[in-house]
Design a protein around this nucleic acid. Structure first.
Lengths: 183, 183
DNA sequence: GAGGAAACTTGCCACTGACAAGATACCCAC
DNA sequence: GTGGGTATCTTGTCAGTGGCAAGTTTCCTC
């Protein structure tokens, strides 16, 4: 691949490299100049596509919510949807860490808001299989409980505070845990 | 309060200011030099007490785990312990955000490891009130489920992705949610 | 009150994000 | 095809940051 003046595919490459870098060193250590170096472009090239650092992370969060919606939507069982959520968080840790840290990006950006709503719908749909709750209030509590338990397990797993003898398969470790909520 | 060469109380002041700053702008935006300015000392003063930025955040995480252990330990009911966890996360958001982002600090520092274990014991103790599980495996799943649901709710609340009409009292909003797990 | 340690300062360097201005390649109307 | 407009990328610069080294001031102990 000859180096031309135009990279031609810079935006997605930067996003992918950013996700990888965050996965390794966390969002705080992310450097736009490092991304540019890895992509073989000048230090100011990222700014053209994303404006600034927050812009890049906004795009990354948007991509993350869409990936999450896809992953959860593909599950056909309620527990499987929860495990898909956890699998997404661990396999796309870079995206996940950004998504739920609103200080890192423009939380109210229209694109990210729309993507977040799509993901929210996918989660709600997955929970539609639950027995119809007696009141709307209880229905909401049930949805929040399900979301909380999978989000919490994912966060703890990523946070590195869980005992090491849980193994290295988060879905396998999570199954008996989240099953306690749906019985 | 006359300005003397020796600040005299710099370490705790820096920790408190750091927690405040992180609460406002997130851990990524934290600047040691800004902390030093706010405390009225030179830009290199923080390094004396903490070595480097990771050292300061290590101390902050340690303090956070101790505060968490205290908060959870003071609750006498299992649901109350969960709500105390969530209240801690929201009221000490600065500590909380650092604690579960291992990339930010020295995760294996002896002090922070010890504090983390103290907090873990406090959580386990709070769960001792649960009915004795038939197997050790189920007992662990129950503990992880409880930890996950409160940790997840706290993370979602802080992440700013929960619907706004939940109000502004996280404990009140969380009670019906986490109660679903203990019934 | 002397000596040594602790607390803090000044000065410096490499790196970063953001901005401005310029260079190059692409693409569409004609 | 070609000329002009535009998207893409580069070079240059600036203030701010973290970390290190060396120096200064205060405290504390014997």
């Amino acid at each position: 691949m000859a180096r031309t003046y135009h990279h031609g595919n810079l935006r997605p490459v930067l996003l992918a490299t950013a996700a990888e870098a965050i996965e390794q060193d966390g969002p705080a250590a992310l450097s736009l100049r490092d991304l540019a170096r890895r992509a073989g472009v000048s230090h100011a090239a990222p700014a053209h596509h994303f404006g600034d650092k927050a812009g890049l992370l906004t795009a990354l969060a948007t991509e993350g919510y869409d990936l999450l919606a896809e992953a959860v939507g593909a599950a056909d069982d309620i527990v499987e949807a929860g495990l898909a959520y956890i699998r997404f968080a661990v396999e796309h840790r870079g995206h996940f860490e950004v998504m739920f840290q609103p200080d890192l990006y423009r939380n109210d950006d229209p694109d990210v808001v729309a993507a977040r709503e799509r993901a929210g719908r996918a989660l709600t749909d997955a929970l539609a299989a639950l027995p119809e709750p007696p009141t709307a209030k209880e229905g909401r509590a049930a949805r929040l409980a399900a979301w909380s338990i999978v989000h919490g397990f994912a966060g703890l797993w990523i946070g590195g505070v869980l005992p090491a003898d849980l193994g290295d398969d988060p879905a396998a470790a999570a199954r008996p845990v989240i099953s306690r909520l749906f019985q």
